[in-house]
Design a protein around this nucleic acid. Structure first.
Lengths: 146, 146
DNA sequence: GAGTAGTTTAGAATATTTCTAAATTATTGA
DNA sequence: TCAATAATTTAGAAATATTCTAAACTACTC
């Protein structure tokens, strides 16, 4: 397997691989961090909030505080292993898919879902002011029950 | 002038007009509500947070509480006079332009700016699941200093 | 194994937004 | 005009999500 893998392909990482990923991000493979990495990266794409990840960790028997969840979500994000998606005014979602892509957001369920890259095209982005660059183009298609 | 006006054209409303707009939304033209409507709609498109609107009102000599700011922002939004734009994980922006359009967001300045409708096109939106409809397609182009 | 630097943690603090219940104001209709 | 009513405003408390602090703990280095 290639040494570098996109977050898209992290669905089958062994705990050895997870340790490698964590070390590659200049982080120590602590018990808590490994457990979070496992919850986040061991089963395909996820869109998760701090609170839900905390609950999942506790349910999995991992003793971990909410502060540590936040610390690690931000460290993973800084390391490029996660992407923060702003879609709800009151809480943050973290997406394990760091490749360029867009999202469906189900209003009633407060649930995010990937729209695979290439599927949507954004055309005709106007000129941007001198001295700036585009850091991200995000499309959110909001869905509600009809 | 036409009886119905898009929020786009509310830049020149007299206080009589503002009262009409407010009554049209089934709201009472109170001192506070008129003052807010004036701050919001009397000078072209705005993208504003509750806190900033509160400060502007106080600066203009209007005695008003923050709770009233929130009440009115939501009432205006429900009446279709404002649109809430989610772009920042920690606070909400309200946009006086309720026509379909997209946004630039200046990361460093935490500032929103309209991209006029028609300028950007979103193509190839995939099929959406049975039983849902698209309530909004939002594009945010994030800009950072280069 | 000792020293250090990174990590975790409980709990406090902060920020934004909502809620509550009481006081105030606008409206209606006698 | 005035009383009844319903909507509105308000201060302050509460709720929610997130960050901070400082102390305890753990992983790493030599």
């Amino acid at each position: 397997m290639a040494k570098t893998q996109s977050s898209d392909e992290m669905g089958t990482l062994s705990s050895k691989d997870l340790e490698t990923v964590i070390r590659g991000a200049d982080l120590r493979p602590t018990r808590q961090r490994l457990a979070l990495a496992n919850l986040l990266f061991a089963k395909g794409n996820r869109h998760i909030t701090a609170e839900i990840l905390h609950t999942e960790a506790l349910d999995a028997g991992v003793k971990i505080s909410l502060a540590t969840i936040y610390n690690n979500l931000h460290q993973f994000t800084d390391a490029g292993l996660l992407r923060e998606v702003v879609v709800d005014a009151s809480k943050s979602y973290f997406d394990t898919n760091t490749l360029p892509h867009h999202h469906f957001f189900y209003d009633e369920e407060q649930r995010l879902e990937d729209i695979p890259d290439g599927q949507i095209r954004v055309e005709n982005i106007p000129d941007i002011p001198e001295g700036y660059n585009i850091s991200e183009v995000g499309v959110i298609v909001r869905l509600s029950r009809s």
